[in-house]
């Protein structure tokens, strides 16, 4: 029986392989087969943990033993009463909106410059990408060291040239700490916008710009009526990605000032870490994560509406 079973199995495999080979590239079956591995990875590493978090948000969980007691919406009610939650939400909004908008304008400007015929253009393009390649932990530690009031170069230079009389602690001042994180975020992630925009600029048909110039359009009009509409779908997708990534960004924000001073740099992801791992309040931490997901779904749907409009206009 075993011997006769072997050829049958081999035959079945061959039949499957032949069927797959015969599928057309536009066949939905092939599309489904190709998507399944990715779907499984997303399922295991994103959807299941997310649903587990959603599930946990309805329980009171003892950290030391993980015993769970259903408490309905209590975690959400408790969270919404906490000023720390609303302040963290506001800081997240400030962090995301400021870094994303500045990255957008700066990124497009740099991409337009790098799109010109410049000397050493390739070298310049490589150097522009540099901040994006440095790990967030290195950036955070370097900036912390630069801004250190006692040992850092920032204070030393400003004192040497007479701008400061005594060192200032910028990362321990609640009014300035978040802004320095925002500056570092802009510096690190603008290259991503540059990269995306530059790639799109290279596929805009040259004849469109040439025709516009022949018709008497100046540089601003060419940008306004030719370049920008072509860039718009990519800009929207880039902004969508930057918004999602910035909103859930933990490393650079936390490592700069560890959420302090006085929670002044605590954004929602840092709040989740604080609740779950410092205050041992796993249920409220899970509720915060769930709210983050809801916010992101809402924001993403707005971006997709704009994206569809931009595509329609281009067509």
């Amino acid at each position: 029986m075993i011997k006769s079973d072997q050829p049958t199995k081999k035959l079945k495999w061959r039949v499957w392989i032949n069927r797959l080979s015969s599928l057309d590239i536009s066949d939905p079956k092939l599309a489904l087969i190709m998507v399944i591995p990715t779907m499984l990875i997303i399922l295991v590493f994103a959807i299941i943990p997310m649903l587990q978090g959603f599930y946990a948000s309805f329980f009171q969980i003892e950290s030391a033993t993980l015993t769970m007691q259903f408490n309905g919406l209590e975690n959400y009610q408790w969270l919404l009463k906490q000023s720390l939650f609303w302040e963290s939400l506001w800081r997240s909004f400030l962090w995301v909106s400021t870094t994303s908008v500045v990255q957008l304008f700066l990124g497009i400007a740099v991409a337009l410059i790098l799109h010109q015929e410049l000397k050493a253009r390739n070298l310049a393009r490589g150097l522009v990408l540099f901040p994006y390649l440095i790990p967030a932990v290195v950036i955070s530690l370097t900036w912390r060291f630069i801004l250190d009031p006692t040992l850092g170069i920032f204070n030393r230079v400003l004192m040497d040239i007479g701008i400061l009389k005594e060192p200032v602690a910028l990362l321990t001042n609640p009014k300035t700490a978040l802004w320095f994180i925002i500056i570092a975020g802009i510096w690190k992630y603008t290259p991503f916008v540059v990269m995306m925009t530059l790639a799109r600029l290279q596929v805009i048909p040259v004849e469109l710009e040439e025709a516009a110039k022949l018709d008497g359009a100046n540089a601003i009009q060419v940008f306004r009526y030719i370049t920008l509409p072509w860039l718009m779908p990519v800009i929207i997708v880039t902004m969508l990605l930057r918004t999602i990534w910035t909103f859930r960004q933990y490393d650079i924000v936390y490592l700069f000032a560890f959420g302090g001073p006085l929670f002044a740099t605590t954004t929602l992801p840092v709040l989740v870490k604080y609740l779950a791992f410092d205050a041992y309040q796993i249920g409220p931490a899970a509720a915060t994560s769930t709210i983050m997901v809801i916010v992101m779904i809402a924001v993403s749907s707005i971006y997709f509406k704009f994206y569809n409009k931009a595509e329609e206009r281009l067509n």
Binding site: T172, N173, P174, F258, G260, P261, L262, T266, A279, Q281
Partner: peptide, 21 residues
């Protein structure tokens, strides 16, 4: 004790509010 003794807990914030605020 979690929200009291943790990093960013009540006692931590007590000192931070004295030092910073």
């Amino acid at each position: 004790g979690g929200p009291i003794f943790s990093s960013g807990g009540i006692l931590d914030i007590m000192f931070q509010s004295i030092y910073v605020d």
